[in-house]
Nucleic acid binder design. Structure first.
Length: 518
DNA sequence: GCCGTTTTCGGCCCGACTGTTTTCAGTCG
């Protein structure tokens, strides 16, 4: 079965190939936008097509792309992509991930030498042939050679939780510079995305043009990539890329909005601005030459006719429409959490200290006066046996389970957990429309594991909520430190548009008992 | 390739930095 991710991948590959071919950049963008739309959609396109839904009703999908998506869903192939692959060697696509090489230069190289692999590119860079092309100076050649060597590292992403410490350390370092008023980590870090590719740091300072010089002296910097007066980029020892942007106080809101992204969200906001005859950039909102907003994010949104949108929602997944319709979610907060339904038995005292009203522990019944202790049992879907000695069964779905096994489990368990390993790119791939529908019908709760590498995707969380499924956020803590994992689960739930009412462990123990009919 | 009640053609977000030029194209975010 073709998944949304498969469709998105094909459209995105097509975009890459069209770009190298030298097609109209806006056409390329149309393909990329469509790829993003499909990938981020909580609707299953396979299903939409089979139900005869008119895809051209979706923003950014016209007659052509609608036909193409239908072709992909029904045949599993995209003939246009197959044609392009015959025409353009795969090696050229690899070159796109080399720093400093974009479609124009790759085309230029290909037209001149008909090079089709990275090995050949390296050879031509070294033997001086490449330098004969107009615009290819010594520094660019050096950059290309370096890019060929480092290609494998391209595209590495870090788990949000992995960069948390370094982000805070950098914030403290920058705050030490005289005159620095605000340091904000923007970008995907601020949007709490499960993985981040780099850190975008925004600095507000009196003498903001001097901060950059101080920034590149940060002790963990391995390499300075670029250093301007208002923008600089460095790489740390662990290859994490850090972008610094320094602006004045008057532009704080506009800059924060701009650098928080996502890119897709920003483009939508700018489109709205244009409709109102306004222009938005990182310095402010302008009516002609006059600046009408920029000090705060609220001001920026207001100027273009929108309400404030939480960073976690800024992915162009309907948040702008929701704002206009006054239907934005009131996102769940860490403080709303009243208990953790999966911790180690040894942590009950710590849970009490955190103010939790209840916890869940495995395979054991314990009675305490200061906290309600539920007993849970984790069982693999497909091997479920009833167990009267525990309060709840948690069904664990792994990659190999079939849809039927999951549907069968839904009739027997209270919670369902779906296996995912973000770094290994492994996850359960089943018909979630059907699964969530059945879960909602049977009152089965979706478990969010808060471990940073095992978080269920926010797209699925959103879909579950839309289907009426309730959610439990658990830490699965084995030690005191891991109890704090709950915040990563909250981050992901917020990205999935979860409100307090969607999360069962925001309720007190009596409500939980009633809810679960114990 | 998409889009539209000022448009069915002619736009499409916007600016910084680099490296190469001698005023700017390409890349990037």
């Amino acid at each position: 079965m073709i998944t949304n991710a498969d469709i998105a991948k094909m459209l995105s590959q097509t975009a890459d190939l069209l770009e190298i071919k030298g097609e109209n950049p806006f056409k390329v963008r149309a393909y990329r936008n469509a790829a993003r739309l499909v990938e981020n959609s909580s609707k299953d396109f396979n299903k939409l097509v089979k139900e005869g839904f008119d895809l051209t009703k979706l923003p950014g999908i016209g007659n052509d792309l609608s036909t193409y998506i239908k072709e992909i869903v029904t045949t599993g192939k995209f003939s246009k992509l197959e044609e392009l692959k015959k025409e353009i060697p795969a090696g050229l696509v690899d070159m796109l991930s080399i720093e400093g090489l974009g479609p124009k230069r790759i085309k230029q190289i290909y037209d001149a030498f008909h090079i089709t692999s990275l090995e050949e590119l390296k050879k031509y860079a070294e033997n001086g042939e490449l330098a004969k092309l107009p615009g290819f100076g010594p520094k660019l050649i050096e950059k290309i050679l370096k890019g060929v060597r480092q290609l494998k590292k391209a595209g590495i992403r870090f788990l949000w939780a992995e960069v948390e410490e370094i982000a805070e350390d950098l914030r403290e370092y920058l705050l030490k510079f005289p005159g620095v008023e605000i340091v904000e980590i923007a970008g995907s870090y601020r949007r709490k995305k499960e993985t981040v590719g780099d850190l975008d740091i925004l600095v507000i300072a009196e003498d903001y043009m001097k901060v950059s010089e101080y920034f590149i002296k940060y002790p963990k910097v391995k390499e300075v990539h670029s250093a301007g007066l208002t923008r600089s980029t460095v790489f740390l020892e662990n290859d994490l890329q850090i972008d610094l942007r320094a602006v004045s106080k008057e532009s704080y809101g506009a800059a924060l909005h701009y650098f928080t992204g996502s890119k897709a969200h920003n483009i939508e906001v700018r489109k709205l601005a244009i409709e109102k005859g306004l222009k938005v950039n990182e310095y402010g909102v302008y009516k002609g030459a006059k600046k009408i907003a920029g000090k705060s994010e609220e001001e920026v949104y207001k100027a273009v006719g929108l309400c404030f949108i939480e960073p976690e929602l800024r992915e162009n997944r309907g948040e702008i429409e929701a704002c206009i319709n006054n239907s934005l979610p009131n996102l769940v907060k860490l403080e709303d959490i009243k208990g953790d339904l999966n911790i180690d038995e040894s942590l009950i005292d710590e849970a009490v200290k955190l103010g939790y009203k209840y916890v869940g522990i495995k395979n054991k019944k314990i009675k305490r006066k200061d906290i309600k202790v539920f007993s849970i049992k984790e069982v693999e879907v497909g091997k479920i046996k009833e167990d009267k000695d525990v309060d709840f069964l948690v069904g664990i779905v792994n990659e190999n389970n079939t849809l039927n096994e999951v549907l069968d489990a839904i009739e027997k368990v209270t919670f369902l957990r779906f296996y995912r390993d973000i770094k290994a790119k492994k996850e359960v791939n089943l018909d979630f429309d059907l699964i969530f529908k059945e879960m909602a019908k049977n009152g089965v709760i979706l478990e969010i594991i808060s471990r940073p590498n095992n978080l269920i995707s926010e797209v699925l969380i959103k879909k579950a909520i839309e289907s009426g499924v309730k959610i439990s956020i658990v830490s699965t803590a084995k030690n005191k430190n891991e109890l704090k994992f709950i915040k990563y689960g909250i981050n992901q739930a917020r990205r999935g548009w979860a409100e307090r009412k969607d999360i069962i462990n925001t309720r007190n123990s009596r409500e939980i008992k009633k809810f679960l009919q114990i």
